[in-house]
Design a protein around this nucleic acid. Sequence first.
RNA 1: GCGCCUGUAGCUCAGUCGGAUAGAGCAUCGGCCUUCUAAGCCGAUGGUCGGAGGUUCGAAUCCUCUCAGGCGCGCCA
Length: 602
Amino acid sequence: MASDGTKTTEGAIGGRLGEALSERVRVAMLDAFAQGAAPEVEAAVHAANAGGQLIKPTSDARFGDYQVNAILPLAKLLKGNPRALAQRFVEVFDSRGMCLAPEIAGPGFVNLRLDPSWLAAELGRAATDARLGVAPVAQPQRVIVDFSSPNVAKRMHVGHLRSTVIGDALVRTLKFLGHAVVGDNHIGDWGTQFGILLWAWKRGHDEAALNADPIGELERLYKEGTAAMKADVEIANACRAELAKLQAGDAENKALWERFVAVSRAEAERVYARLEVTFDSWHGESFYNDRLPGLVEELRAKGVATESEGAICIFLDEPGLPTTPFIIRKSDGAFLYATTDLATVEYRRETLHAERLVYVVDVRQSDHFRQLFATCKKIGWDADFVHVGFGMMLGADGRPFKTRDGGVVRLDQLLDEAEERILPVVREKWPEATEAAQRLIASKVGAGAVKYADLAQNLATDYKFDWDKLLAADGNTGPYLQYALVRCLSIFREAENRLGLVFAPDGTALLLGTDEEKALALELARFGDTLDRMGAQLLPHILCEYLFALARLFSAFYAKCPILASNIDAATRHSRLTLTHLVWRTLETGLSCLNIPRVTRM
RNA sequence: GCGCCUGUAGCUCAGUCGGAUAGAGCAUCGGCCUUCUAAGCCGAUGGUCGGAGGUUCGAAUCCUCUCAGGCGCGCCA
């Protein structure tokens, strides 16, 4: 990550300013209030601490940098005057080094102000650290992130974008935090669609079309097969027969299936390459086939699953869950994706020793995952299960994002369009570059804009895809962040060109003279806490918002605080270069966690 | 019919398991390039937090009801 001889040394606070402060607050609270008090007081402090509620950044700079709100609710438990309790807290609070003397305000808030000289020294040190002072988490988890998961024989389209981009960002961020992460592409490479595909293939495929556009031909066959099957019961039976042969290991069907999977994967890989997305494994549904029969029998034997109307079902009578059963074997004996998902959990727990299982899948499948997780719990498979459900991608008109004629938007064409739309701007801003260089920048800015738009919003809701908004260089967009990073690099380039100054941070404390520098420093110090929060909540927009705020503060600093001008003294210049260096590497690290491409100029 | 999710400024969205005067961006209006990329910066205007009750020192946040929109509901994934 560091290209200039920086070394890894953990900062005094492990890069978690908020966490360090919070710990001091916790100690002071127990010290001030828990002695001889009701056990609820201690429990309340622990609860607030666990929820990260002991401190929070102030809502207003006049209140300092962090505020302690937790004394007010405690006052109720202690039946005391909040301000008097705050006074007791302030007396025992250890502000040594980190903070100035705490202040009591309002009905019983305590305002904490960071000691500027401590912050300046801390950041000076962080600038020389390869991880910006952010130590890996103390307790790494084994995490599986299940994401992207396209179906074989179908082209990658915008419906796959969100899972792919969000999952990838989660994987990279959790890895940076020090967790043992496996990003798994759980491709849809098994199931009833292959019966249809095999039948349609045998009825008549076009070898020339297959060579020219493999996925196009498979999609055509699938579409025709589905239509034929719906129109004719005999054909539906024939499709089922083909599927049965495949499942029984028929050599011809198996070979065809392998061919379908191979061409589909090749197609998907081309799109992943453009998105720069990678996986640690590609364990599709077929990977778990062998486990299915035994699993169903085991669950029947355990009494977890029972037969109903010929199907093997799991009934989960719990509030919040659908009343319909979780079906793991159809009445015709075939298995379903519920079965595969259970077998997948079993494998991930037993073989991969997963502690946390993350599924990045469309929110419309939340019922399925609620049932899946409840079933696992019922079986006794203990783990931290999370469904990261995201909303649909809508057009600017608020209706599902489609092509003009109502078709699905192909992912490769979406990326083409992003590049085409941004290319004129690149040509205008950098006319002396070669066509190839301009195209490369345009592809990175275009893909980055599309990906960032997907990550920047809370994923619970549908999001509106609007070319003008996401490609804009102002506002919370990919291009804005890439531009901020480019400006950092430009400063170092010009320092070398004009002054012959090759800058490297040396660990000396910053000089935080102006409001812009102070605000920037405080934000930089919050990077580690932000990563933790994103890792805990699995919400990429938390990191996006942070990076945007940082980039904005940097832009204000850039406008107000000259660095290379001749009237700037050496010490100030060095400090501002260090700040710029920190911003550069924070943006670099943050964008790389989100996997938004970085460029050196634009 | 049952269940889940969403409703915050003209538009797009934040709001960290209740906390101080609800925040950004876009758009609009007004400023800023003889120093590092103006794809930028600064300022101003703009909100009954869908509505009504309730809980309490204190509610966008918790509870109840209600309106509006989206999604899902036995052998597809």
